[in-house]
């Protein structure tokens, strides 16, 4: 895989190296987002909204107007911006806790209303920033600080399938997909299509990205990759679930 090692032009060089832990997937997602910002030339129209969670560390990541919001509240802030000034291109960036637990009502209703914003959920199957608690997407049997004997679906339900949920309630014009940082080419394709859908103003654009959190998983590089490509991939299928022209890539 030929990887582009150069920094995207839209990155804010003054804040690099970035603040994520070594091996963290957030950096990879933001690299791809940076490339897409460059390729589609949206630096001057985009507004980046970051949640509270490890996403907050990206508050000065890009040379893009950026607003740090509250835990779970990035979608409504971006919706408010878009409704007030439809020329802008708001992109909400959050974790699985922010998107599917505390902010789930905002995600569901943004999708229902087909808000012309884009939302990215970085799914690392735990609450990274607060030290590795169970999150809505924690896998059955997975040990976290608040599921020390492994997540028991009898007690705490099954992992949230975000894109599947959003796809089920989305309106025509929406774009819904799941990608993973372990397949950067696919991630780039989906990211670009999601942002293109945002620019076109067809409808809600939603992208979940399977991502790594070696710090809280307590995994080395090899184990991290294996957990994403095997354990997580079994549960969370990548692919496009909704596209504006309904031509899905499986």
């Amino acid at each position: 895989m030929a990887e582009n090692l150069a920094m995207p032009k839209s990155w804010n060089v003054e804040t690099k190296p970035h603040k994520f832990c070594p091996g963290c997937g957030h950096g990879l997602v933001l690299k791809v987002l940076g490339e897409v910002i460059d390729e589609l030339g949206i630096q001057d129209r985009m507004v980046f909204g970051v949640d509270i969670g490890c996403s907050l560390l990206a508050w000065d990541f890009f040379n893009v107007d950026t607003v740090q919001t509250h835990h779970g509240r990035t979608n409504p802030v971006m919706v408010g911006i878009k409704r007030a000034n439809p020329d802008l291109l708001p992109i909400a960036y959050m974790g699985d806790g922010g998107g599917y637990a505390i902010g789930s009502q905002h995600l569901v209703n943004s999708a229902f209303r087909n808000e012309k914003i884009m939302a990215i959920v970085v799914n690392n199957v735990n609450y990274g920033m607060t030290g590795g608690q169970m999150s809505p997407t924690t896998l059955p049997g997975q040990k976290t600080e608040t599921s020390p004997y492994g997540r028991d679906p009898e007690e705490t339900g099954n992992p949230t399938l975000g894109p599947e949920m959003v796809a089920a309630i989305a309106s025509p014009g929406a774009y819904v997909a799941r990608a993973t940082v372990s397949n950067m080419k696919q991630l780039k394709r989906y990211m670009k299509k999601a942002v293109e859908n945002l620019i076109a103003g067809n409808g809600f654009s939603f992208l979940e990205v399977i991502s790594s959190c070696p710090t809280n998983w307590r995994t080395n590089a090899k184990q991290t990759w294996a957990f994403m490509e095997e354990d997580m991939a079994k549960y969370f299928k990548t692919g496009e679930l909704r596209t504006p022209d309904e031509s899905k890539e499986g």
């Binding site: 000065d60 890009f62 040379n63 107007d65 919001t69 911006i81 000034n85």
Partner: peptide, 20 residues
Amino acid sequence: SVGLPGIPGKDRSAVHLRNT
């Protein structure tokens, strides 16, 4: 506060608003 004219980082500096 956001979406001002010009390309951030080129024509003007980017607006970075935080509460943390």
